[in-house]
Simulated assay, not measured.
Amino acid sequence: MRIAVYGTLRKGKPLHGYLRESKFLGEDRIEGYDLYVDVLPYAVKGNGELKVEVYTVDEETFERINRIEVNAGYIPVDVNTKFGRAILWEWVHEPGGEKIESRDFDDVEFKGW
Rank of each mutant, 00 (worst) to 15 (best):
M1H: 11
R2L: 04
R2C: 01
I3Y: 03
A4R: 08
V5E: 02
Y6S: 06
G7M: 04
T8F: 12
L9W: 11
K11H: 14
K11D: 14
P14S: 13
L15D: 01
H16K: 09
H16Y: 13
H16R: 13
G17V: 12
L19F: 14
R20I: 14
R20P: 05
E21F: 15
K23G: 07
F24P: 13
F24R: 15
F24I: 14
L25S: 05
L25Y: 13
D28F: 13
R29A: 03
R29H: 12
R29Q: 04
E31M: 05
E31W: 09
G32E: 03
G32V: 03
L35C: 10
L35V: 08
Y36L: 01
D38V: 07
V39E: 11
Y42M: 15
A43P: 00
V44A: 11
K45G: 01
K45P: 00
K45H: 09
G46I: 08
G46S: 11
G46N: 07
G46P: 08
N47I: 04
G48N: 08
E49P: 00
E49A: 13
L50K: 06
V54A: 09
V54C: 11
Y55A: 05
V57F: 07
V57Y: 02
V57D: 01
E59F: 05
E60W: 04
E60H: 05
T61W: 09
T61L: 09
F62T: 00
F62L: 14
F62Q: 01
R64V: 08
R64Q: 01
I65W: 03
N66D: 12
N66V: 00
I68K: 00
E69A: 06
V70K: 06
A72E: 07
G73V: 04
Y74A: 04
I75V: 15
P76H: 02
P76M: 04
V77E: 10
V77F: 00
D78Y: 07
D78I: 07
N80G: 02
T81V: 06
T81M: 03
T81H: 06
A86C: 10
I87R: 13
W89Y: 15
V92M: 08
V92H: 02
H93M: 11
E94A: 12
E94S: 13
E94L: 11
P95W: 03
P95T: 07
G96C: 10
G96D: 05
G97D: 09
E98S: 10
E98N: 11
K99V: 02
I100E: 03
I100P: 03
I100G: 07
I100S: 10
I100F: 12
E101K: 13
E101D: 08
E101L: 13
D104N: 15
D104S: 09
D104G: 10
F105K: 02
F105M: 05
F105L: 03
D107Y: 06
D107T: 06
E109Q: 09
E109H: 09
F110G: 00
K111Q: 12
K111L: 15
